[in-house]
Amino acid sequence: MIKGILFDLDGVLLSTDQFHFQAWKALADRLAIPFDRRQGDRCRGISRMESLDIVLENSTRTYTPEEKLQFAEEKNHAYRAFLQGLTPADVPEETVRVLTQLRIRGYRLALASGSKNAELILEKTGLCSLLDGVVDGRDITRSKPDPEVFCKAAQALGLSPRDCVGVDDASAGVQSIRAAGALAAAIGPAAQAGEGDWNLKSLSQLLERCPGMEAVLCR
């Protein structure tokens, strides 16, 4: 029986994809490296350093580990500057409605994000008030598709992953959910590819799949 729902952040509860792309593009332009939207899409759901490798793949030279760390920090500084302008108005009304209704129905909700900027996003948007637990990039040592983030998010709710459904929009995230032993609800690109146990066209479809706890107990 599903008791908890574990959400990825970016691309699920709200979208800052444009900020990521702009920050990586600014770095690529400074280094005179071609970088397009297709490459930007490949950066979704993976770690910052893995994303950097994608940005640098068309470079005509190689970089030292120290240079790569500097580039990653440069990108993150630019991205966080964009995030400073976030407000609660940037959270889709659908997200607020769905999270509120799920809490009313008795589900416990947690964030399961690999982003180390999740705290800033939650603070600026007010999303933290709709969540019972938060696990982000500062709490894990292994990025998706490793199951660590979803295992810890379930633990933050006092639940087993097998009592939870995870929601993610990236292939790596769906793999992470499954590896944790939770039911995988895919949305966005992962859903379009049919990668989830549930493939959702919108976040609202969670409400069709997750009835009130009283209804579940009476089955």
Rank of each mutant, 00 (worst) to 15 (best):
G40Q: 07
V96T: 15
A191E: 01
I104F: 14
L183H: 11
G188L: 02
K25F: 07
R37G: 09
F82R: 12
E195M: 14
S176V: 03
W198L: 15
A154I: 05
Q101G: 08
A184C: 07
G173F: 04
L159H: 11
I121S: 00
E73G: 06
A180S: 15
G114R: 00
L56I: 11
F71L: 07
V135W: 00
E195R: 08
I177A: 03
A186Q: 02
R108K: 15
D169E: 06
R142L: 11
I121T: 10
R44I: 13
V167Y: 01
I104P: 06
P161D: 06
E148W: 06
A81W: 11
R30L: 07
G40F: 05
L217Q: 14
I2G: 08
S59M: 08
Q39E: 14
I46F: 01
L56Q: 05
R219C: 13
A112F: 04
K124D: 03
A153L: 06
G196T: 08
K124S: 02
A179D: 08
L56G: 01
L9W: 06
A112H: 02
G137C: 04
G137N: 05
G173W: 01
R162L: 10
R42F: 11
G85F: 12
P65I: 09
E67Q: 15
G212Q: 11
V165T: 14
E93S: 14
W198N: 05
G196P: 00
S129E: 13
L6R: 03
P211H: 01
Q70S: 11
R48K: 08
L9E: 00
K68F: 07
S171L: 09
A190T: 06
C151V: 14
Q39F: 09
P88N: 09
R138L: 02
L122W: 01
E57P: 02
S47E: 03
V55M: 15
Q39N: 09
K3M: 12
E57F: 08
F71M: 09
S176R: 01
R42M: 15
V96H: 11
A191T: 02
R42E: 15
P145N: 05
L86K: 05
D146L: 06
P145Q: 05
S143K: 04
C128H: 10
L127D: 00
A110P: 03
L120H: 10
F82A: 12
Q101F: 12
D168N: 10
G158W: 13
A26G: 05
C128I: 10
G133F: 05
T100A: 15
C43F: 04
L102A: 12
A153R: 04
I54G: 00
S129V: 09
M1W: 09
L86T: 03
S51P: 03
R105Q: 12
P145T: 06
K25H: 13
A182N: 06
R80K: 14
V96Q: 13
K152F: 07
K75L: 08
T62E: 14
L200H: 08
I46A: 00
R61H: 12
V96C: 12
A118Q: 02
T141H: 11
A186I: 02
D197Q: 10
